[in-house]
Design a protein around this nucleic acid. Structure first.
Lengths: 341, 341
DNA sequence: GTGAAAGCGCTAACAA
DNA sequence: TTGTTAGCGCTTTCAC
């Protein structure tokens, strides 16, 4: 069913039908209702390709997910974030175009989807401390919102982020207050903004407590299960192993759990583990230490907010940064397990 | 940069340029090379919306991910599968349109994206034993491939699936051979095809060993971490708790791990756990029991294959089922932990 | 309040 | 081998 057919059925011109359906004021209410009814009954949906061509808007947002390696699982955070964003898109009539990027084809993908006119805006995930993609996107001139932040740059841009520094600061402080002195941090790659922020918070808490940080307790690598597994194994082999481990994400946390389990140790008894990204429910059931709000369940909300933000930017044709709005919308960090004896 | 501009720059007609770029044979190699160079240097990319409109093909595949609840994470399997599919799409010049569906808006979404001409084909995830969506898609007439199978129907359709029955049969058999007599199964909803197949395999192994199945050891619910957590807790509270637990997916497996950990038990010592979907690497490092090939790392490959299959169907304009090709491309099931004393 | 006509950027008959 | 023309299905001036 296309517009012309619908128009013919109604004895109207395509123009009028289009106007009726798109809420233009000059159409009489009687006609509009008649058109609406017919469209409904015929299950008419405007062809998006044609609409796009005529309006110049793709009504589509691109999400580009970094692919760490073929042998590591895609970080579940991204799907979660997109599930949230998708709610916003649905309501606004937008669609979500998904691409996966290796490090080497990332620029191509960005340039590509914009040049092809496939998207009106882009969500940038997992930024680096010096992220060339931001300059790239600004140069291309496509609206975008960063899921995360980039501190090492002057220009303005819009972002939405969890409060990484504060949450790792608070979590570390919590672990210290529970009596831990050797606290490990399984962290992301140093170039990643979030990893840097998390480390900063962690170190601040240590230094405030008069503890000095031990580099053998901190790792920097991709956020993969393998990373969590291997580094935790190393930690447990140390002469003086840590009594608490701060896992910087759900995925490395999985690895840590496995390593602990395989070593015949019990999490929360032999070693405490605080996993960033964990759900609230986790702690409702454990419940022997205080806890903060988990991230994972909030990531969906973050996606929703980021999408709203981006659509607003697109609608206003302004790229005014709106960081401050959401700067600390999440308080994160969580901990489980009793203090060491 | 658009086609007409490029053509003008070259002193050629748009047609010739289009033909040169799209590999039509009637263009001279000299011209083709000249065009190619210019296109490259001008970073020209054909506008997809226009191409779509002209050709009638959207060059886009829709993936619809079921959303279980707002409070449960999106199953990581889907992202993994899409990452694989996306490789195929990239090579073939296709794009991936992602939608999330609640149970109640699912039909709308399918009808919508097809009627709007947004996609040329659809991948259907996580089918039910009696899945109305298959009839729906066939009625709509859009090419599709099912990730999973639907046994309760006569009509043909294309699918790709892991060999659920066989893998749960084999895994259960393995656990029995290790001496386990009470083996629990944390399973998906009964309506789901995969859950039904898994249970069938599990029961077959039990009955072959002369063990009778105990319904208090089998659960049926959405594949969520909460489900795994709660059911495992129940299991561990039983007068005679199971010595082995078969977790039907990665996500419920997470819950099981948590419950075991929170109960102060050690996985692989106090209770054996076999997790479907686990990675090979898991067992390389534990390694005290035989194991099969894990699913998780293969899911990406499954996505790739499904995508190839779908593109083939689209290209051939045939919807001849191609099930048999891939019927058992994966052998799955895995196990960890020693036998009980 | 409604319609006619042009055009979005491309492809594909048909001509030359 | 190249160009001319029409049209994909919609929106949007402009005219009535």
């Amino acid at each position: 069913m296309k517009l012309t057919e619908l128009a013919e059925k109604l004895g109207l011109s395509p123009t009028t039908v289009s106007r009726a359906l798109n809420g233009y004021p000059e159409v009489s209410e009687v006609t509009r209702e008649r058109v609406r009814r017919m469209a409904e009954s015929q299950n008419y949906r405007p062809n998006r390709r044609a609409t796009h061509l005529a309006t110049g808007r793709a009504m589509t947002i691109g999400h580009i997910i970094p692919l760490v390696s073929n042998y590591e699982m895609v970080n579940p955070i991204f799907a979660e974030f997109m599930a949230g964003a998708s709610q916003t898109y649905n309501q606004a009539g937008y669609e979500l175009l998904l691409s996966f990027a290796d490090d080497d084809n990332e620029e191509d993908i960005y340039r590509g989807i914009v040049a092809k006119g496939a998207v009106d805006g882009v969500i940038l995930h997992s930024p680096q401390r010096k992220d060339p993609r931001i300059d790239l996107l600004q140069q291309i001139g496509v609206p975008f919102v960063v899921h995360g932040r980039v501190s090492e740059r002057e220009q303005n841009y819009s972002w939405i982020d969890v409060n990484n520094r504060s949450s790792f600061y608070q979590t570390t402080k919590l672990l210290i207050s529970l009596g831990h002195k050797r606290i490990a941090l399984i962290n992301g790659k140093e170039q990643k903004e979030f990893a840097w922020r998390r480390k900063t918070g962690y170190e601040q808490a240590l230094s405030e407590a008069g503890l000095k940080s031990d580099s053998s307790l901190v790792s920097n690598a991709d956020m993969t299960e393998t990373h969590g597994l291997n580094f935790t194994k190393e930690l447990l082999k140390q002469d003086e192993p840590p009594t608490a481990i701060l896992a910087s994400s759900y995925v490395v946390g999985l690895g840590a759990r496995r390593a602990i389990s395989e070593a015949g140790l019990v999490m929360g008894r032999d070693v405490s583990v605080a996993v960033h990204d964990d759900e609230l429910s986790y702690f409702h059931n454990g419940g022997d230490v205080p806890l903060f709000t988990g991230t994972r369940s909030s990531v969906r909300q973050a996606g929703q907010l980021a999408a709203e933000l981006l659509l607003k930017i697109i609608a206003d044709k302004s790229i005014a940064p709106v960081n401050q709005l959401l700067q600390s919308y999440l308080v994160v960090g969580s901990s489980t397990g009793p203090a060491p004896a």
